[in-house]
Every structure is written in structure tokens, then in C-alpha cells.
Write a protein that binds this DNA or RNA. Structure first.
Lengths: 185, 185, 185, 185
DNA sequence: GATGAATGAGCATTCATTCAT
DNA sequence: AATGAATGAATGCTCATTCAT
């Protein structure tokens, strides 16, 4: 989607229906034919982002049900991979996140996304506790929130701050290692 | 500043010179007298934010040079305090951060702010290493980045997600404790 | 015709080709197949109106050549009947009349209609003068104009003012009686 | 008012804010400064019409309280005068009347106008009955409606049909004479 | 004949900015 | 310094019409 790139480049403020149409090589009325209103266009961007979230994950060796620790490592690995590969996705994500404060439609989408993400992490953590690789007294919900905060911080720092690649790599490794240590302590 | 509140409420997208003037009870032409362009108005918002950053800190008992661990705890305590007390400041901060990607003037301000913040943390960490409360092999710059990421994640999660207060308290405590443990290990 | 109803409901201003097509249950491009332009569509409305004018008359007992006074009474009776039965026809009529000032095609139609109407009335009046039921010195053309003005006033008042039915009945009776008295005096 | 002339020339359909501004020699944004919305502009036209209704009356010899018959004659005289002098006023009037069916704001204005007009006529008629120049059994309200219908018919016929001046003169005289005869019979 | 997509011209309205006082 | 009026350059959106299938 073109609108997506526009937001990445100029933000929501700079999102112009005409400009998106022009970059798509179509008449602006044609764009209105597919997205009757600007709001609909933005919804389209949101859906595009969600799709990208599902397809653009880092490559993965083992299928089936890998050990929880592996799964967790993969989460960080995936974040690193994507921050490097499609950083603009995170920029759009943050734009949308900020916008979600005023746009109920977007807020709903993000609430669902957050819940889904939490559930995913909690599932991993509970399994880890069950099979004994994570400590007994771990509160899965609280730990999931911690992990989310780490990753949000990572996204914030990298997507908006553009630090050198080496720093990012070191950072992700440290975050992953510390999280792991904390969970297994 | 009124423009500041407007941004907190409606975001950059919704920032209107006329509206700011109206809320300030003056004519919009009069506002242009003080801030010749909208860009200037935004710079005013940035300056206002920086000022708020310096004055609005959490209350503190001991002056002089407190132990590094205390200083670090205070950083988290301050974040918790401000996120509770003036959450809209963080909202504006994130709006500006997102905007900094396209606005060089804002980007410059944030670069300075980041450097200042890093230097402050590095100072604390180096002192801690020197006096032996933090581990010998600690890389102060890397650790400072880690702490910043934690705090950015916290700001992101709390300012845009509005989790319940109790969750925030627990989260900040955990983040502070884990960071401390990591530094002193 | 659907367009006809649309005009009755929303006026010329609100006449939309797409809306007409939608109400007809067809694609708007299909409508353009039948009426290549909006102008053609309006011509269709005009023709539909003319047809309605000829078919929708009040029921009538005697055929052949009724007495002129009967014929005249019938004209008023017909107006009353139609204003009650199909008031929206008069609304469209007035819309078209107003439009005729700028649309030569419609103006032509109305000129023909007016002439036809005048001729019809003049025929009745001349016959009435000839057989002696109307006064000798009557100017048929002038009297026809008078009758037309009465009926236009009636249409204007009733179609756009929506007065209660009883008032309309009384009004038409009075108009018919006065006209009759005037012609026979 | 310029918008007024535009409506007279091109009707409501053809009323364009930009065109009005251009004809007024001002920027279209400037027009929006005075009339924030097109609706407001139309309200301005309505008010202008009402004002014109009050100031543009036919010249009148006697002040004070003229005999009812004189007053009535004056009403017709005034109509003839205005139809000749400012025919476009009647065109706008009819445009607005037609529009009043869909625009509650305009409908309200016309309801008030109709009531005012009725009251005025009823006042004259009642006085005429009281002093004995009109017939005893006259129903003032019904008679007022009759007179209004006559005048509406006149306006309709003349403003939209543009008949030759001589015909109009004859018509108005006949209408006035017949009305008078009917009231005094 | 019918349709969905496409289009260009135009529309009311918005908004930061400027001007005259 | 302050203001109300003015302005130009958009901006999202509409609509009759055309095109390709």
C-alpha cells in the first residue's frame, strides 16, 4: 500500500489523499472510489500493517512446539530482524499508536493486538513454568508485560532514534539475555 | 503554554493556530505577533516541554551527591511520579519524538536531550563502578542505553496504553529492581 | 420514472444520477446507457410529467361535448382531485417551471403546454359565448389567462404550502364559483 | 447582495460560493469570513429578500388609515408595480419557496411571512366588514386566503412566464376589480 | 445491454499568514 | 501590541461522464 509509505515518510500530518493517489499513479477520485473517505484509507493502512506483522517475521528453523526459551529468543530475534529489515513498519506503528489516543477505530485494533501479543507471551511463559525451565513463582501476566515494555522501548529507541546497527545488535542481545536470566533465576 | 495542551489533547494533526489563540483568549493575528509562524509556535512548545522536564521532577530527600544506586532508583521513581502526575507531558513528548523524524529543528533538540540524558546516566554509572557498587566489567555507555530503552518502553507503554495504576507501580518496581540487580551482579 | 420521485423529494438541486440509478436498482453506467446525459434524464422527467398530466385526470361522467359550464367546473374539480391525489406532481411541475427560466428545452415544453392549455380554455369559453351561457362581451383570451392565473395560484398555494384539506376544498369551490359568476354575469 | 442576483440569474442549483465571491470582487475565502457556510449565505439572501420586501413597495399617496378598499387596491397596485420594477425579486421568491419544502430554516421564514401577510389582509377585511363597505357574511380568513391565492397566481404567471406588460396590466386590473366586486357583493 | 473502475472538473471549506488600522 | 478583515493555496470530497470488459 502506498499510503503506508507516505505515512512512514511524512507522518499522519502529511498524509494527503491527492499525494497518495499521485504516487499510486491514479486519479485522486479513483482512490476515493476504493477508499470512500480518508478514514477508510487509514483503516486500510492499519490492515496493511497488521498483515505485514503476520507475514514479515524472521525466518525460523524449527516448527512444531519449540522449547519456551527458544520461542522467547525468537521474539527478540524477530524484533531485531524486522527493525533492521523494515524499520519503516515500526515508524508507522508508532504513528498509529500515537494516533490511537484520538481515533477509537485504531484504538480498538491496537487493543486487540496488545491482547493477542500478551496471550502469546503468556502462553510461552506458562508452558515454561509448567515444564520447569522458568522459575516456579513467576507471574506470567506480569512477566509478559515486562517483555512487552522491553520491546516497546526497543522499537521506540531504534525506530525513532536510528542508532548504529552494531549498537542495536548488542542491545537486543543484552535485553534477551537479561530477560532470560530473570525468568530462569 | 496553551499550544502544549492542544497537542496533548488533539495531537499535532489537530494543532490549529486559531484554536490556540482562541483558548488563550486573544486574536489569532495577535498570536502571530508573538509566534510569527506555526513552526515558531511549535518551537515554543518544545521549549516549554524542556522547561517542564527540568522543573517537574519527583521530590527528593537528599541533596549533594547521593549514592549511585539511590540516584538510579530516583530516576525510576521520578518516571513513575511523572507518568502518574503529568502523563500528558509524555504524550506530547512522544508526539514530538515522532515528529522529530521529519523536523530537523526538533530532531536537534532531541539529540541534545538524549546526549544530556546519556551523559547523566553514564556519570552515575561510572561513579558506581569507581566506588565499587557496580560490577567492574560494566560498560557505562551500553548500560546507559539499556536504561534509556527501559524507560522509553515504560513511557510508551504507560503514556499510550493507559494501564491501571497498580500495574504501573509493579512494573516500575520490577524494572528498577532488575536493572539494579543487573548492574550489581 | 424514478428520477421524477427524486425531484419531488429532493428538488433539482438534489437530483443525482447515481441516486436515481441506485433507486432503480441498476448500475449508474447502465442508466447512462438509457439517458446519455443528465439533461436527457431531465427531459425524460418532463415527458413523464406530461404523460401523467394526460392520464391522471379526475374521473368524469359524461363524454362527448358537455356544456361549457360543466367543462369549466371539471377543470377546477380536476385540479382539486389531483392536488389531493398526486401533490408531488405539482411540486415537480413548479420545480420544472422555475427551471424553465434557464433551460430552453424545458421552456419550450412549457410554452407548448401553456398554449395548449390556453387553447383548450379559449375553446370552452368561445363555445360558451356562442351558445349564450357566457356574457357576450367576454374576451376569451383574457378570461383564459384569468383562469390560468387562478389555477396557478391554487397550485402554488397548495403544493408548496400544504394547507389542510378542508381549506383546499373550500378554496377551490370559491374559486370555481367566482369564476363562473364572473363569466356569466 | 450579490448572491441574490446570482440566484435570480442561475437559480439555487447554479449558486456557487466562488462565483458570488468573484462577482463581489473578493476572494472566496473572504466571503467565507462573512458567511461561514453556504447555508449562512442563503440565509443572508433570505434576509435581503425580506428587507427588499419592506422597502421596495409602490409609492403611496395617503398615509394614516385609508379606506379598506383603497388598501386592497393598493395591494394589487403594489404587486403590479413590483412585478414590473423588480421582477427578479419574485423569481428569487419562488426559488426560495420551492426550496422551503426541504429547508426548515427557509420554511420557518416563509411561515412567518405568510402569517404576517394573512394578518395584514385579515385586518383590512375585518375593518371593511366593520364599517360596512364589505358584505356582512364575509369570512375574513377565507377571503384573505383567496386574495393570497390570486396574488400567488399572479406572481407565478408573471415572474415565470414573462407575459407582455399590457397583458399584466389588464390582468391585475381584472383581478383587483373582481376581488373588489366579490367582497362588496 | 450491463457493469465496476476510472476520471477531470469542480465544490465548499480550512488554515496559516498578511494587511490596514 | 492588538485586531478584524482579507487572502492564496490547499484539502477532502462529489459527481456526471467515460472506458474496458
Amino acid at each position: 500500500m502506498i499510503a503506508y509509505r507516505q505515512i512512514a515518510a511524512k507522518g499522519f500530518e502529511g498524509l494527503r489523499v491527492r499525494e497518495v493517489a499521485a504516487q499510486a499513479g491514479i486519479n485522486n477520485a479513483t482512490l476515493h472510489h476504493h477508499f470512500p473517505t480518508k478514514e477508510a484509507l487509514i483503516q486500510g493502512v492499519v490492515e496493511h500493517l497488521l498483515k505485514e506483522f503476520q507475514i514479515g517475521r524472521a525466518p525460523r528453523q524449527d516448527r512444531g512446539e519449540p522449547p519456551p526459551i527458544e520461542e522467547l529468543r525468537y521474539e527478540f530475534e524477530d524484533a531485531r530482524y524486522r527493525l533492521r529489515d523494515t524499520p519503516e513498519m515500526y515508524v508507522v506503528l508508532m504513528e498509529l499508536y500515537v494516533r490511537s489516543r484520538r481515533d477509537p477505530a485504531i484504538a480498538r485494533v491496537f487493543e486487540a493486538l496488545e491482547r493477542q501479543w500478551s496471550d502469546h507471551l503468556i502462553g510461552i511463559l506458562e508452558r515454561g513454568v509448567r515444564i520447569g525451565v522458568f522459575r516456579r513463582d513467576l507471574d506470567p501476566a506480569g512477566a509478559a508485560t515486562m517483555i512487552k515494555v522491553q520491546m516497546k522501548g526497543l522499537a521506540f529507541h531504534v525506530a525513532l532514534g536510528k542508532p548504529p546497527r552494531a549498537q542495536v545488535d548488542r542491545l537486543v542481545s543484552q535485553l534477551a539475555a537479561e530477560t532470560e536470566r530473570w525468568l530462569t533465576r
